[in-house]
Nucleic acid binder design. Sequence first.
DNA 1: GTCTATAAATTGATAGAC
DNA 2: GTCTATCAATTTATAGAC
Lengths: 191, 191
Amino acid sequence: MTTITARERLINAAIEAFAEKGFAGTTTRDIASRAGMSPAAVYVHHDSKESLLFTVSIEGHRSALDVITKAAASSTDPIERLRSMVYDFSLWHADNSRVGRIVQYEYHALSDEHRAEVATFRRSIEKTMQDALADGVGQGVLDVDDVPGTAFSLLSLGVDLVRWFEPGGSRSGDQLASLHADLAVRMTRRT
Amino acid sequence: MTTITARERLINAAIEAFAEKGFAGTTTRDIASRAGMSPAAVYVHHDSKESLLFTVSIEGHRSALDVITKAAASSTDPIERLRSMVYDFSLWHADNSRVGRIVQYEYHALSDEHRAEVATFRRSIEKTMQDALADGVGQGVLDVDDVPGTAFSLLSLGVDLVRWFEPGGSRSGDQLASLHADLAVRMTRRT
DNA sequence: GTCTATAAATTGATAGAC
DNA sequence: GTCTATCAATTTATAGAC
């Protein structure tokens, strides 16, 4: 049996509201009413509006890092590994486009301390992709001139989905993730 | 001699503020003070905060469309044309990262009428890239399975720059645009 | 742990003097 | 075309009853 606490209901309401209107454009009244509570009830469960954002952001970053880390460990073949990493990272952004939008676009709205904490996850995501490319080059299977730049570009394909992707649109997440994986291989394979 | 009107000073102030804090996070007082004026002076030159955003957004869209349209006309060779289009589009986003951020991230903050007006520019940008790919496939030079999806992915490389690019950082706009152009050719060239 | 009521500050925008 | 002063509404967050 799944019990949804009032705290979790507020987080889900915050995800909806922040993704739709942005952090600054969202009022605590909006979050409270989406969760079926009075404005005052928010503060029983969360310290502030920003702490709500931090909860959403840190969990989103943790989840995205988890996905790409597991994909990186799924194979030692550089091509198959890259395909998995790009596919899973893009699919995560399609499947979690609302959280993804908050993760990517509300980074600046975090407090300095919270932003610093979240930044460590971002660096890990980038390093995971860079390491996979560098290893593929070392094995002689990939040909990548600019490893950090190419790693960033591969991640960009997934990240940019959150700008426009809506579930139930004309393209499925799987379709887009497969396309990105194909493009990634063409971008990096030694010929 | 270049005369900067009060109206233009306000637009420049709005670009700074919106890019830094987002539309909803920016106060009209902030814009006024960046332009060296009182809060009331804003409304002598612009109807509302949203009309300031619209002015920035429509000019930004117009400029980005202009850049990619000119690049599309610069060559009939599919590879050279694609290289120009991706290079120029990415460079535009690096050189205009503040306006680009407003264009890309504050689209939802426009009024319904203004958003519809801006949307026509977006469709033209996408169509220009799609047409270039389709023509390259027709000439037998490019190999692209999913033309709309690949066009979107190529544009994503440039668009996503505005999320993090800062002038004076470790990478120049030219460096990134060249990388994107190289990746674009690898993604689409027939082998 | 929820509510109603409200404090204290800030917001977009306007009035009217100069 | 700029200012000071201000309105009316809204904001985040708290107080205190139940």
